[in-house]
Design a protein around this nucleic acid. Structure first.
Lengths: 211, 211
DNA sequence: CTGATTATGTAACTTTTGTTACTGTGTGAT
DNA sequence: ATCACACAGTAACAAAAGTTACATAATCAG
């Protein structure tokens, strides 16, 4: 584990902190599609991403969903910290977007390290900073843009995170992520295909040019 | 200033920190409607609210606006911290909702105090925590609710912050806050009036019962 | 008082999004 | 092969939100 840790976090944390993480953290490997957290779960640990990506979604009591952002290598989830601090249950859902390796750190360590290590403090602040900005961008997208533009943003982000030109999702899954209906997504995707920007296939979409 | 400071922050910070704030902070008093910050402004200080309330709005380059939340006594703006950390320009607009008293603290002090005072650290974390949650709730509202419900939420929050049953706004102003058009707001307000839940007047709305 | 300005009411229409319903077509299990 | 099922295409319609246009009423400056 210590090697994985150093590769992803060596440039961020001092050796002493890396050792502490190695001591109290537990290594986890989850396959794509694995649900790491659901709405209502109690938060026990803080994830430090080593490789892969995790999809973070907002989910309300009625089961309405909305994609917030992806966690990637070297990142953590400030939403988790958020829940820990408030002693509240999770209001988000976390699903592995790819096969993912991560280290879980008990939440009790968080405050201790915040006082002890400047690098940890910066990491936590940086994380809050990034997540707040990402949530703001999603808010911009939902509040100011129409569904066709939101779909384009979605496809672009998806190929960035997955480093591929083929998106392996059904129209229904995309509809869930954007909180709309399958018919709406099929309609808009068909338009993109007619513009020659994508190719539609069963269970996957080939990206030609999103500009 | 030290007295104002103690009233609002005495229970949060130790005396030593209160003294430091008093030394480097500048006291400010602004009237309702005063714009404290616009999009593109550089962030020079961090506001500590002493009394009153400040309306925080998201604003994009096209001038689209959306109300995010209100800052109240004893609170600060993590959006400000957010901007400071990233060395970026402000992506929000701040307007005094009521006559407001506040203390401006130079941003340079932030990191220094974060290392030095546990109470400050907690305050900053708590602030990020609260703001992230508030932005999430706005996101829920925009993503999952229809305009009639969003308008109700808006009116409720407005009377809570202003501690009054009369809202002194034009329909156009409300439309800006919710990022919709004046006609839509007039339409929905008229429905609420017909339900006997509000009374409409020129330049103000009397709240009867929002349940 | 008069005229200009601002706020509101409302009709008529368009656009966008959401819903229902039905079709056809791959895919995989047996 | 055949059956069941999940996925996608599409039409027809409904609902919500946005737009344009105009009328009327309150307010204010001169």
């Amino acid at each position: 584990m210590i090697q994985e840790l150093k590769n992803s976090y060596g440039h961020l944390f001092e050796d002493e902190l890396l050792n502490e993480i190695a001591q109290v953290g537990t290594f986890k490997e989850v396959p794509a599609g694995f649900t790491l957290m659901s709405i209502g779960d109690y938060v026990r640990g803080m994830p430090l991403l080593v490789s892969g990506a995790i999809k973070i979604m907002r989910e309300d009591k009625e089961g309405d969903e909305l994609l917030l952002y992806y966690l990637e290598q070297g990142e953590t989830c400030s939403m988790t910290m958020n829940c820990c601090m408030g002693q509240t249950k999770s209001e988000i859902k976390a699903v592995a977007e790819k096969d993912t390796k991560l280290i879980m750190v008990p939440v009790q360590k968080m405050e201790e390290w915040t006082a002890k290590y400047k690098s940890w403090r910066n990491f936590v602040f940086q994380s809050y900073h990034t997540r707040l900005n990402e949530v703001l961008h999603i808010l911009d997208s939902v509040a100011f843009e129409k569904m066709d533009q939101r779909l384009l943003n979605y496809l672009k982000e998806k190929i960035r995170v997955n480093k591929t030109n083929t998106i392996h999702n059904t129209h229904q899954e995309i509809a869930y992520d954007l909180h709309t209906s399958r018919v709406v997504i099929s309609r808009l995707l068909k338009k993109l295909e007619q513009m020659g920007r994508i190719e539609l296939h069963r269970n996957h979409i080939k990206i030609i040019n999103l500009v």
